[in-house]
Every structure is written in C-alpha cells, then in structure tokens.
Design a protein around this nucleic acid. Structure first.
Length: 303
RNA sequence: GGCGUCUUGGCCGAGUGGCUAGGCAGGGCUCUGCAAAAGCUCGUACAGCGGUUCGAAUCCGCUAGACGCCU
C-alpha cells in the first residue's frame, strides 16, 4: 500500500490559502487540518480570519476554533494532536490538506520536534519575574553556567529563547541542549509542500484591504469583549493588541487601525523569511489556476 | 516685474566650516513548546552648477523650484 500524502499549503497571511485549500480538499474529496496558531481559539473569529461558515460547511476542518483562549496550547501539543488526527484521516483518505501560516507549527508536523518534558508553568513565571526585576543579563548569566553549549548558539538578546532554555534546565536539571537530537523524523506519509506567493505590493494591498473589511465586520466589538483578557497569550495577536491600546487611550482609533495594517505587513514579511528558506516548497503565484496546482500535486505524489 | 524666505535619504527632522544626529516607513535575517510571539541587523542624504578654503550640507555667486510680501 502506497504512503498517503499530506498536501501542505503555506504562504503569507491574506494571500488566499483558505480558498485554495478548500478547492483542493474538495477536488480530492478530503478534509483540512489547520496549522494556524490563532485560529484554534473559539473566542476569536474576525481578527484571525477563520474560514466562514460556508467555507467550513464545504469541507470538514480540524483545529479551527476547537479550544479556548483560557487553555494553554503550544506547538508540542499541536504536533501530537495533529499527528493523531492525520492518522485517523489517512485511514479513510489518500490525501489530506494542511493549511497554515504558522511556520513553526507546520514544521513541527512535517519534521517533528525533539521531545522535551512538560514544564510546570510556575517555573516560567518565576523566570519572567526575574527578567522584570533583574534584567536580561541575569538570565544570560544563568544560562551561561547551566548550558554553555546552548548559550553559544542561542540569541542571548531574546528573552523568550533564554527563558525556554532555562525553564527546561530548572525543571529537569539537565541542559536544554542535551534534549536536542536534531535527527530527522520519519513520517508515515509523503508531503507535497505548496507555497502561495505574490509580489510584495499585492500582498500588502490585500492585507490593507482585509483589515478594513475586518473593521467593517465588527473587529472592534469583538476585541472589546476580549479586552479584559488582554494578558492572555492567545491575545498577543495582531489586530487585538492594537485595539486594546485604543481602548486604553494609548492610540486613536485610526492609529490603531493603521498599526494593525503595519503589524500584519511585518508579520507577512516574517512568514516570508521563514518559508523562503525551505527548499521543499513549490511556489505558485496566487493567481494560479487550481487545476494547475492539482496537476502538480498528482504528479508529485505519484513519484 | 521687485523684494524676501526656504530647498537635507521614501517621509518627518536636527545640524551655521572638519568628528558622517535621530525618528518613522521600508528591506534583510534568526528561530525546537509564548511563534500573529520574541529578538537581531541595514541608510554617508544635503536642489543643480560654479567659486572661496587645506577642508562646505554649512560661506559667496548664478540657475531652478516652493512659499510669502509688494507693485
């Protein structure tokens, strides 16, 4: 029996991934797994541009708004859940489509992460407090002593990276670097990676337009209901934080909206940086006919 | 037509003879459980031409453009 195929669609935000994924899933009579780190949350819809109810009705979707902003969820959880889901789906489908703009989440499913133990959230809290109270130097110092190998490699200016390495060390007593196996994980499925792209100006235009539409659809009202939860990780999200700043009086409404556009543009740029370095991606212009892409998928998966 | 003021990188903006402000926008990049996060990094521009000077964005002249006032 041949290996099943995971068709993975990536690309910058607002390029049209959702539409393409539905067309392809439809043509192949299969289902869609979302690899979007913000569309998991049921409390957010407008700002995360989740598929519309018509789109969701057209093709079964997974990992769309299936948990709450109050849950803690990370790439590791997603890798595990997605693989389990894929196994189930591949028992009835030859193809499954995965779409998403979250590079790390996509890579977790495709290439796998090394296994790290669960860390008590209190440890991270303590590290964050240490950062606030004593500054980043103290974290750098601690890591230099605990894990000189990783200290050499990590971006020591980046508190997130420092804290991750230290929380593993504090939780296990073993250096973060000792968990890195960097062995390429074998998957039980083949992968066809499709990147959607367009000239920068076009992407930016689409982003600007989409933000205006989100505002028309009631993003401000949606954000207002979530304002009280602004500290939650799920709400460290473009489109919400800027509006929280507006509610708090730091920004005017118009400023908040143009900040959302700017931050979304920057996000798209970072997505580009991430995906560009993956040589396995076959890029298509966003105007490419679905039939052309389907043909590519068929040829590629037959190899 | 006359007189005066102004002209700095995509934008804003400091700088009044030597030591290449700064901000924003934009670009490039990093990345193994906070990832729509977090972090790193990149700009020798002074309207044009000529002159003074060892040396000019800074001084002088002409030209062009903008603005203002006068006739």
């Amino acid at each position: 029996m041949p290996k099943p195929t995971l068709i993975c669609i990536v690309g910058p935000t607002a390029i049209g991934k959702t539409t393409l994924s539905i067309a392809i899933a439809n043509a192949l009579e299969t289902e869609i797994i979302s690899a979007d780190s913000r569309q998991f949350y049921k409390e957010m819809s407008i700002g995360t541009a989740v598929p519309s109810s018509e789109e969701l009705a057209a093709v079964p979707h997974h990992f769309i708004q299936d948990r709450s902003i109050f849950d803690t969820y990370s790439v590791g959880d997603f890798e595990r859940d997605a693989l389990r889901k894929l196994e189930a789906l591949f028992s009835r489908h030859e193809y499954v489509v995965m779409v998403g703009g979250s590079g790390l989440y996509v890579d977790a499913v495709l290439k796998g992460l090394d296994h790290f133990p669960k860390v008590d959230p209190g440890i991270r809290e303590a590290l964050n407090e240490k950062l606030d109270a004593e500054g980043i130097e103290t974290l750098q110092q601690e890591l230099q002593e605990a894990d000189p190998t990783h200290y050499e490699r990590v971006d020591v200016q980046n508190p997130h990276r420092l804290i991750r390495a230290l929380e593993i060390y504090r939780a296990t007593g073993k250096p973060y670097s000792s968990f890195l196996k960097s062995a390429t994980t074998q998957r039980s499925f083949n992968t066809v990676l499709i990147g959607l792209t367009a000239d920068r100006e076009i992407v930016y235009e689409r982003i600007n337009k989409r933000v205006d539409i989100m505002i028309e659809q009631g993003l401000i009202e949606e954000a207002r209901t979530l304002h009280q939860h602004l500290d939650l990780n799920a709400l460290q999200t473009v489109g919400y934080r800027e509006l929280f700043a507006y509610f708090d009086g730091t920004l005017s409404k118009d400023e908040a909206i143009s900040e959302i556009k700017k931050n979304t543009r920057r996000f798209a740029k970072r997505q580009g940086t991430w995906f560009r370095k993956n040589p396995d991606i076959q890029w298509f212009d966003h105007s490419t006919a679905v039939a052309t892409i389907l043909e590519f998928i068929k040829t590629k998966s037959a190899q």
